Amino acid sequence: MTLTTGPIGGSAAWIGADMTTRSDWMVALTPAELAEIDDAIAAHRRAGRAMGEITPETFRLPTLAGRLSKVLDDLLEGRGFVLMRGFDLAQRSVEDAAIAYLGIGSHLGGFRSQNARGHLLGHVKDLGLDIQNPKVRYYQTNKELEFHTDSCDVVGLLCLRAAKAGGGSRIVSSVTLHDRMLAETPELWRALFNPMPTDRRGEVPPGMLPWFDIPVFNWHAGKLSTIYSGQYIRSAQMNYPEARRLSATEHAALDRLDALAAELSLEMDFRPGDMQFIHNHQILHSRTDFEDWPEPERRRHLLRLWLSPRTGRDLPPVYAQRYGDITPGNRGGIVVQDTELRFTLEPT
């Protein structure tokens, strides 16, 4: 275990209240770039390609590709998030929207499986499922999500339809959280470098335990990488008596991290067509609870991507418990014994 020796700072250490006065994290797609996207969708359809065949080479974006390269640099080396706006859904089918989203995503990284069923195109939608079921994920409900990270390098969301009320996206810099805890509560800061059992929620790779042990804060190769799901750390304490018991200091550290995340976060409302991308290793994300429309065809629906860029940072070996292979461009995602990789246009 290696601890940081002081505050990290830099462009990745931002505060939500300050970001509300800035607009550099918003990317407005131009008419020329939108025309390129439409041309690429048409070329994909003419070629009769499957969604799994979408790559930067097959989904050509002559000028937008350069802008997406800058977006990727901002994600991996800068503030860690971006919101792309201006993609009009009114004249596009869900399938065309998905093709465009996958095409844009392919310029940022390779697609990774988001659940045990191998979904490479995820659906964030209230399916009316019982959250008490250990195999049900919170994104399949309308409940508030606590701040957490996902099991990949970059997380993307495309808003197809917004909720009637609520459902705001909240993000926070884990670098800022680290620096604030180091300054204010060093004992609690130190506890977050301890490996903590985290529940896999039934998605267990062959030969693995139903939980994995990993620190929240990981200092490696000169960078802080954060992996966190407080809900699943706490559920591992309830569900697996053989998992290591957390100390009172470690519980207090999790509570303080959650409180600071809420205090320092940035909230943004999604409009249909908005695409949000975040760097999972330096951003925690959450969502407010929401009230949905009564009509099924109007209900909140987001498409999700998990991406692995070839230029991703080095990760510490302990991440292999969750990521499997930790080679940049080929890591992250959830794969169990019977996982079959697939793209689907319907949430299941």
Rank of each mutant, 00 (worst) to 15 (best):
T141Q: 05
R287L: 10
R331F: 08
K143Y: 14
R298H: 10
D255C: 05
F290T: 04
P328C: 03
L145C: 05
H148C: 13
A261E: 04
E267C: 05
H301I: 05
F270G: 03
E57M: 12
E95W: 01
R92L: 15
L68A: 04
T4F: 07
L3V: 13
K143I: 10
V124T: 08
Q337I: 06
L158C: 01
T58W: 10
R190I: 06
L302S: 00
P186S: 15
N280M: 04
Q91K: 15
L257R: 03
A162W: 00
E291F: 06
L260D: 11
Y228W: 12
I233V: 15
F212D: 01
S113K: 01
R244G: 03
L182A: 03
L224Q: 11
R322W: 01
Y240M: 06
A43T: 15
S229N: 15
L64E: 07
R300Y: 05
W306Q: 00
E184K: 12
I104L: 15
G222N: 13
V94C: 01
R67C: 08
T4R: 12
L160W: 09
M1I: 09
G202W: 05
A35Y: 12
G52E: 09
L307C: 07
K135D: 13
T149G: 10
T149K: 09
S286L: 11
G9C: 06
T344F: 04
I99Q: 03
R271N: 10
G86F: 07
D74R: 12
E33V: 09
L264N: 09
L192S: 00
L34I: 11
P195Q: 07
Y138M: 14
M181I: 07
M1A: 12
L182Y: 14
G168H: 13
D179W: 00
Y139K: 05
H178S: 15
I278A: 02
I8G: 04
G110K: 06
D325C: 15
D38S: 12
N142V: 06
I54R: 03
G103H: 03
L121G: 02
G207S: 08
M1K: 10
P205F: 11
Y139R: 10
M208C: 11
T141M: 09
P317D: 13
G110E: 06
P31N: 10
F59R: 02
T344H: 11
R271F: 08
A221N: 13
M238L: 15
D258C: 09
D96G: 07
R170N: 09
R137C: 04
Q140T: 01
D269K: 10
M51R: 07
W306A: 04
T185S: 13
F59G: 02
E53M: 10
L305W: 06
V175I: 15
E95N: 08
A162D: 06
R310D: 14
R22M: 11
I283Y: 00
L192A: 08
L266N: 00
L284Q: 02
G105R: 01
G230P: 00
A252L: 05
E295A: 12
L266H: 03
F343C: 03
R244S: 08
M19S: 05
H119E: 14
Y101H: 03
T348E: 15
K223W: 03
G128V: 10
S265K: 01
D338W: 11
A50N: 14
P328V: 07
P195T: 04
M268Y: 11
K143H: 13
N194P: 01
S113M: 08
D73I: 12
I54S: 02
D269E: 14
I37G: 00
